[in-house]
Amino acid sequence: MPETTIDEVMAELAALEDPKMREANEKRGDDHGVNLSKLRAVAKRLKTQQELALELWATNDTAARLLALLVCRPKAFAREQLDTMLRQARAPKVHDWLVNYVVKKSPHAEELRVAWKADADPVVASAGWALTSERIAKSPEGLELAGLLDTIEAEMKDAPERLQWGMNQALATIGIEHAEHRARALEIGERLEVLKDYPTPPNCTSPFAPIWINEIVRRKEE
């Protein structure tokens, strides 16, 4: 069976473009109009194709980049490639999928976590915090949780939006996963009031850390 060409895939993505979907996505900073369920269906059909993924990424098209992240081979990327890709990924959904679907599966994840968390670019730093939340939950050995809480307490309130979200997730994860730090995590969240008034749809948990922590802990204890 012949490999699908980049031109064929780009034509298919163009055919899936929905102006109303684009309008809704652009309000969140994502400049594409492709339904993500349909995008995943395309990826499922294409299966893993690393070379195609690299071509899709190089188009600089948001829908194509999202598809690239679904058909790539995460462990095939060099550390420098992933660092470059993160700095190119300005659309929030591309940034999110790159971190969650690719970098977390990479052998370079821990090295990148440390480098990105200290980066001067707040969008890059937010990826470092997302990877830190993953470690807080799954492999906290070697992390200084009290020190992370110190940083969050000092910096989260005035951090740019994306970085603030990353720190807030880490705060909530510490409170949820580590009972010995829960009281302090709750206290920091209550005092800083970050995302306290965030509009939350029915049946969804608020991102306000004290509500988030208490709700997930309650579910775990049921």
Rank of each mutant, 00 (worst) to 15 (best):
Pro2Phe: 02
Glu3Pro: 06
Thr5Ala: 05
Ile6Leu: 10
Glu8Thr: 10
Met10Asp: 07
Ala11Met: 07
Glu12Gln: 13
Glu12Trp: 03
Leu13Asp: 10
Ala14Trp: 05
Ala15Gly: 13
Asp18Tyr: 10
Pro19Glu: 12
Pro19Val: 07
Glu26Gln: 14
Lys27Glu: 12
Ser37Arg: 15
Arg40Glu: 15
Arg45Met: 04
Arg45Leu: 02
Gln49His: 14
Gln50Ser: 13
Leu54Gly: 08
Glu55Leu: 11
Thr59Cys: 09
Asn60Cys: 08
Ala63Trp: 04
Ala63Glu: 08
Ala64Tyr: 02
Ala68Ile: 00
Leu69Ile: 13
Leu70Asp: 15
Val71Glu: 13
Cys72Asp: 14
Cys72Asn: 11
Cys72Lys: 04
Cys72His: 06
Lys75Pro: 06
Ala76Cys: 08
Ala76Tyr: 08
Ala76Gln: 12
Ala78Arg: 11
Ala78Phe: 10
Glu80Leu: 00
Gln81Trp: 06
Ala89Ser: 15
Arg90Thr: 15
His95Trp: 15
Val99Asp: 12
Val102Pro: 01
Val102Leu: 03
Lys105Cys: 07
Pro107Lys: 06
Val114Cys: 01
Ala115Trp: 05
Lys117Ala: 11
Asp119Gly: 01
Ser126Arg: 04
Ala130Arg: 07
Leu131Cys: 09
Thr132Ala: 10
Ser133Arg: 05
Ser133Thr: 02
Glu134Ile: 09
Arg135Ile: 05
Arg135Pro: 06
Arg135Tyr: 12
Ala137Val: 14
Lys138Gly: 08
Pro140Arg: 05
Leu143Tyr: 07
Leu148Met: 12
Asp150Phe: 09
Ile152Cys: 01
Glu153Trp: 02
Glu153Leu: 06
Asp158Pro: 05
Pro160Lys: 10
Arg162Asn: 11
Leu163Gln: 12
Trp165Met: 11
Gly166Gln: 09
Asn168Leu: 09
Gln169Glu: 09
Ala170Ile: 03
Ala172Trp: 05
Gly175Ser: 06
Ile176Arg: 02
Leu186Glu: 09
Glu187Thr: 12
Glu190Asn: 13
Glu190Gln: 14
Glu193Phe: 00
Val194Pro: 03
Leu195Cys: 05
Lys196Gln: 14
Tyr198Thr: 05
Tyr198Gly: 02
Thr200Asp: 04
Cys204Pro: 00
Pro207Lys: 08
Ala209Arg: 05
Ile211Met: 04
Ile213Arg: 04
Asn214Val: 00
Asn214Tyr: 02
Arg218Gly: 00
Arg218Trp: 06
